[in-house]
């Protein structure tokens, strides 16, 4: 019974760290800052959550504290990415040549024209 739980925990751990690895590959391969951020955020969130779940299976007495770390990450990780994306857009980080549309830039340009008489 306990060895079955240990194997499940190990598999969760490997799955989680595999997602971390894919995210890091995306971080290297993606063409611009925004797409890198996408790769970096989603995979690290799920990857870390799965790893924490795996460790909780291997060491059940740590489950509460691991849950706390998981909840904390689930909320802070997307927040920090949003702040980073906003900062990158505000300082005008270049977008990849494949980019098809940027509504935010259009709206900001429109507001600038409206402000100037």
């Amino acid at each position: 019974m306990s060895s079955l739980l240990a194997v499940v925990g190990g598999i969760l751990l490997v799955g989680g760290t595999a997602f971390l690895l894919f995210g890091a590959i995306g971080l290297v391969r993606m063409p611009d800052a925004y797409n890198r951020l996408q790769a970096g955020t989603k995979t690290t969130t799920l990857g870390t959550l799965l790893s924490l779940a795996g460790v909780a299976c291997l060491h059940p007495e740590w489950a509460l504290k691991l849950l706390l770390i998981g909840i904390f990450l689930l909320f802070t990780n997307p927040l920090s990415s949003q702040v980073l994306a906003r900062a990158a857009h505000r300082i005008g980080v270049k977008k990849a040549p494949q980019t098809v549309v940027d509504r935010l830039e259009e709206d900001l340009a429109e507001k600038d024209l409206g402000a100037r008489p």
Binding site: S3, A6, G10, L13, V14, T17, A24, S51
Partner: peptide
């Protein structure tokens, strides 16, 4: 069995760390 999986996981996390460091 579980030990091997934990070592494999540590290796994957290490490679991920190195790749992110390359981007850094």
């Amino acid at each position: 069995m579980a030990d091997v999986l934990v070592y494999l996981a540590a290796t994957l996390a290490g490679v991920a760390f190195v790749l992110a460091l390359i981007r850094f």
